[in-house]
Amino acid sequence: MERIFWTECPSCNGRFYCNHHDFRQSEVKLMCPFCRERFSVQESVLLDERTDSDNDSSQPAQQK
């Protein structure tokens, strides 16, 4: 399965998800599909990148 992470836009609080490989460790800015704000992963209000293989998959998404 493609690995993704959910993010939350710091401008409009819209939530969407992104390809982990393309963005999680990169400097490329995400683009919010709701308000077109460009922001880095580090600026995300929320990050949810749990996978089935995580031992702690029952933990809730991280709030930043």
């Binding site: 493609e2 993704i4 969407f16 998800y17 992104c18 390809n19 393309d22 963005f23 490329v28 995400l30 683009m31 599909p33």
Partner: peptide
Amino acid sequence: GEVARLYQAQCL
């Protein structure tokens, strides 16, 4: 919203 009725993740 792709053919399998899931959104494709944002990518490059």
